[in-house]
Write a protein that binds this DNA or RNA. Structure first.
Lengths: 106, 106
DNA sequence: CTGTTAGTTCGATTATAGTCGAACTAACGG
DNA sequence: CCGTTAGTTCGACTATAATCGAACTAACAG
């Protein structure tokens, strides 16, 4: 059973987090996960080809934003909220709040 | 006297802000401005050619992070803290706090 | 074993960004 | 007017990232 690399909280880099979240599609994924987790990739695809979605999930994983666990056939994704909070207190909450301030609904 | 375009607070986009701040050089500029403003570009150059620095300042300006005012020969830059706060409350503070948590000093 | 599902990996293409030197410009001092 | 300073703009090059189809893989159902 294949598993994924997830950086340690202490190795998360602010620039990588901000970069990962600066893409509207990836930010939307994070918002949806914040609202409902864990979730597999499929319902978050939003009409894109699987290879593109997989790429975006990999960026989120490498930044440390999400954790992906293989559960049977699906790969369940969840936000690493506590670890993010321990590394950068208040950051994720502030960004999610900013995202909900923007006109676009989740 | 040449002036610059600065987006209105209501037109600032989260993805542009995060993108602008995801570059370590630009984040450093913002941190230095937060510590001491207004400042001209020159002391923030950090050994780069002027054209590169000018490019990074333009990115920060277009995102809405900084305001540049022409004052005589120099261009004075300041953080648009209040406008950012009105658009995305707590966001800039959280990112600056996260930056100071990272090992690198200003 | 076969088929299916969910997602990854590969490879090619395209688009976007960063970098830098060189030429330019606006404001000032003398 | 001339030189200097501070920063922009231009254009070329390079590097990084997004996109997508196609082939692949792991886990499960039957």
């Amino acid at each position: 059973m294949k598993q994924y690399d997830h950086p340690l909280a202490q190795d998360m880099q602010l620039s990588c987090l901000l970069y990962a979240l600066s893409d509207p599609f990836r930010l939307t994924v994070v918002r949806k996960l914040a609202a409902c987790q864990p979730q597999p990739c499929a319902p978050l695809q939003d009409g894109r080809p699987k290879s593109s979605v997989s790429h975006h999930f990999a960026v989120l994983r490498k930044a440390g934003l999400i954790r992906t666990e293989v559960v049977g056939v699906t790969h369940m994704n969840s936000l690493r909220e506590q670890e993010l909070e321990s590394r950068f207190p208040g950051l994720l909450a502030a960004i999610l709040a900013a995202a909900s301030v923007e006109d676009v609904p989740v």
